[in-house]
């Protein structure tokens, strides 16, 4: 807990084959990690789009994790390579939108890596706590007409 009592709100996109199962394993093993991240399941990390991440930030998330299978392990042969390819571009895009570095994180978590999943969520929570609230959702409320999520989506 930080002094200001700020609890980061995090979204985690988890691929269903590796990282979602890795998160399940963390549970089965009763590992403990901070409760800040809500998981959203996709079949493959390659399904995650920049708009999903923007949407999360626009709706009040302070940080977003994308987690997929390790390179070579993808259930869809090479879907995670698409993720890996897009990720640096998306980081640049978010940077241009004024987002600090470190609010988005890409991790490879296998179905056997419950401990890694717990560690990553723990680390990320503390990193975002240190960065402080993002506050895009409040900003958007003020400038509702400026950047509506629909406009981002289209």
């Amino acid at each position: 807990m930080s002094d200001n009592g700020f609890e980061p709100r995090l979204i985690g996109f988890l691929c269903r084959w590796c990282s979602y199962n890795g998160a399940d394993l963390a549970g089965t093993a009763r590992l403990k990690y901070p409760p800040n991240m809500v998981p959203i399941k996709t079949n493959c990390s390659g399904r995650v789009e920049p708009t999903h991440i923007m949407k999360a930030f626009a709706d009040g998330a302070d940080g977003v994790i994308i987690a997929g299978c390790h390179p070579g392990d993808c259930h869809y042969i090479n879907g995670n390579y698409r993720t890996a390819g897009r990720y640096p571009l998306m980081e640049k895009l978010l940077e241009q939108l004024g987002l600090e570095h470190g609010r988005v994180r890409l991790e490879w978590v296998s179905a056997a890596e419950g401990d890694k999943f717990a560690r990553v969520v723990g680390e990320f929570t503390e990193e975002i706590r240190a960065l402080g609230p993002l506050g895009w959702s409040e900003q958007f409320k003020d400038e509702a007409a400026a950047v509506a999520p629909e406009a981002v989506t289209a």
Binding site: I40, T42, N43, G46, E49, K55, H75, Y76, G79, R82
Partner: peptide, 24 residues
């Protein structure tokens, strides 16, 4: 896998059960 969905510049492919609107 949904790779086509996220790759399309015009958001034309959609994945049943994992539609953009559902994820949003």
């Amino acid at each position: 896998c949904g790779v086509c969905v996220s790759a399309c510049g015009s958001n034309v492919p959609q994945q049943r059960g994992y539609l953009d609107v559902q994820i949003f």
